[in-house]
Design a protein around this nucleic acid. Sequence first.
DNA 1: ATTATCTATAGATCTATAGATAATGC
DNA 2: ATTATCTATAGATCTATAGATAATGC
Lengths: 195, 195
Amino acid sequence: MKVSREEAEANHERIIDAASRLFRQKGFDGISVAELMTAAGLTHGGFYGHFKSKDDLVSLAVQHALARSGAAWTSITGDADKPFAALIDRYLDEAKLAEPGPACMFAALAPEGSRRSGDVRRAFADGFRSLTGILAGLLPAALRSRRRAASIAVFSEMVGALVLARSVDDPDLAREILRIVKADLKSRFPDKAAA
Amino acid sequence: MKVSREEAEANHERIIDAASRLFRQKGFDGISVAELMTAAGLTHGGFYGHFKSKDDLVSLAVQHALARSGAAWTSITGDADKPFAALIDRYLDEAKLAEPGPACMFAALAPEGSRRSGDVRRAFADGFRSLTGILAGLLPAALRSRRRAASIAVFSEMVGALVLARSVDDPDLAREILRIVKADLKSRFPDKAAA
DNA sequence: ATTATCTATAGATCTATAGATAATGC
DNA sequence: ATTATCTATAGATCTATAGATAATGC
């Protein structure tokens, strides 16, 4: 059964969306093309009409997830009295321990991404520039030119904390890592007091 | 052909050693049991005389790599005038970008480890406690009880920086990340001036 | 007529096991 | 006689493709 051009495009997006979530949950190699297509409500064989290869989908899924993160960051900080603290609290929320699906692509898959094609690593580089750019805008204006450096140090600490907290099997230790790093980052770069 | 009990034990160690390096290079799923055994100079079928399963080897390889890191950290800092700075400079050395084989198990495989068995995650938790313990001993005594928290913040930033630097396809950006985070950590926690 | 999707399968993996082989160590 | 290692293979994947099907859109 064929579908309309619009519906086919919607299917294309649905595959990317499911993939970007399922890859973060199970790893790039932890979910097969057949499982991905089932998750998107389609059958295995249809995949290769939408994408050149699985690696092609991987790079699109990374791009998609990182673009979404950027939009989420802008939305979270837009509403907040203390934008930097709000972002840190969200990024390192305890819920992120058990639910990597909707969380950060870097924390879930950057090391696996390092071993993949140039297209995938380009998507990570673009996402890195975009997310650290958003972060830099939240840091104290007094830092001036050091804002860029500070944003890179902050993002490293954010990603590292989530990676480490997820890797340990002790839930108390995992929560402690998140708590300590949230406090450390917020004390290093306090938002101006709210108006 | 059989070998002596001692030689068999040496083979056992050689498999773990090769695995701990090759897993960091290619991922837990990126190298097969057959390839691992070839790298150790043995044949495929012999593997299951040494280990219960591939996952069993994974947890031993994680343990082995993290124990080695602890020993290396102690050795690096033992000789140095500025132990903390020496450790940071080594951990975030540019050579670590292209050579994950001998580098940090957390930076290479913690996210993949998060998706594996309890044994593997216990090995990561033990390694985390051990390495942050070493770090805490290098931080200014004046921090007192906050040394533990500081060591966790520092280790997060170290791991995150290496993970991020490796994920981007732009070598200049990767080196910039390492350079910025090295400077940031050393300025936050300067060693006492050498005697 | 075109084309998005589906069914079925080729070909290449990979983990784990069964049974054979040959050197060690009682 | 015991046992570390080897050869060979079963069984279960997984990616990618070929050819059929059926609804869209000229």
